[in-house]
Design a protein around this nucleic acid. Structure first.
Length: 297
DNA sequence: CTTCTTGTTACTGA
DNA sequence: ATCAGTAACAAGAA
């Protein structure tokens, strides 16, 4: 489940790998992963180059040199970008065997850099390197839009953590104006971008706030703790190249290591690392929610 | 067989 | 008009 740290990791890796390389072919194995026609994608992409990659929330957008166009990529839950250079193949995505899974896990050079069962789109560059866009559930998408459409899409996102726009005053103001659960507010991309189910639970644990607390009942002091937890945890998770739970791998096919640092997510039934209470799991905001009822109030 | 998984959005009702 | 809550989406795991 890629959230900010995972998308940021992929974006940075890809920027080092594919920028300013001529796109020589685009192969589409599943056309409904595209929000425009296959013909339009091929037409606009082949012969073009990606010159910059940005991220807003969990959405990546690639600037193209020609035509004032942008490639949008959303990974949703199970999307992956896997980059393979000409000789050393680093394969990610959905392993087709136990052996492949081991190779991916250990980041080994694999001998099976090929189209997998869930590979939906393959970009090939002039240096013979390839970029695979994989997705198991077909929720992920690629789109090709102009500047105007891009701006309309970007405008819908809420405040962006880890930027100068992420100010406590605005953050607290959002919380005070919402009666719904604090977790629902954290997950709402139009209010605060980037946070998904894993980091919502982790930041709430660090701040000592129960996920089902009404947002407008969170005190200024608690909100400040949460604000700092969001910055701290997201930054740290980027350092660890993200969290892998089920499908996430970076563009080199490697899993993120932040999973070792998770305090509550996926730890239901286990002892709280702070107080030894048992971590509970319930549903808040329609999502699996993990918390310690002793550390969080 | 049923239930659960998640990011996002469509829909419903207040 | 705005907000809140739920279901739906896909496809697999348990």
């Amino acid at each position: 489940m890629p959230e900010l740290p995972e998308v940021e990791t992929i974006k940075n890796d890809l920027a080092q790998a594919i920028l300013n390389k001529k796109i020589v072919s685009v192969k589409v194995n599943k056309k409904n992963i595209l929000r425009k026609s296959v013909r339009y994608f091929k037409n606009k992409l082949i012969g073009n180059k990606f010159i910059k990659i940005n991220r807003r929330g969990k959405l990546m957008y690639f600037s193209l040199r020609k035509d004032d166009l942008f490639l949008l990529a959303h990974l949703k839950m199970t999307g992956q970008f896997i980059y393979c250079n000409k000789d050393k193949f680093i394969v990610g995505g959905h392993a087709n065997s136990k052996k492949e899974e081991e190779q991916i896990l250990h980041g080994q050079v694999a001998d099976f850099c090929q189209v997998g069962k869930y590979t939906r789109v393959i970009f090939e560059f002039s240096d013979k390197s390839k970029l695979f866009f994989n997705d198991l559930r077909l929720f992920a998408y690629l789109d090709l839009v102009n500047k105007k459409s891009l701006d309309e899409i970007l405008d819908k996102f809420g405040i962006e953590p880890l930027t100068a726009n992420f100010k406590f005053k605005d953050f607290f103001n959002i919380l005070q104006n919402r009666k719904t659960s604090i977790k629902a507010v954290l997950l709402n991309q139009q209010l605060i971008a980037d946070i998904g189910n894993i980091y919502a639970d982790e930041t709430l644990f660090m701040a000592g706030i129960l996920p089902n607390r009404p947002a407008n009942k969170v005190s200024s002091k608690e909100a400040r703790k949460l604000f700092l937890a969001i910055e701290g945890i997201l930054k740290k998770a980027i350092k660890y190249r993200g969290t892998t739970f089920s499908d996430y791998v970076d563009s080199k096919g490697k899993k993120g290591s932040f999973v070792k640092l998770l305090k509550v997510y996926g730890r239901q039934g286990q002892k709280c690392l702070k107080c030894k209470n048992i971590i509970e799991k319930t549903k808040t905001a329609n999502r699996g929610t993990h918390f310690c009822s002793s550390c969080q109030k």
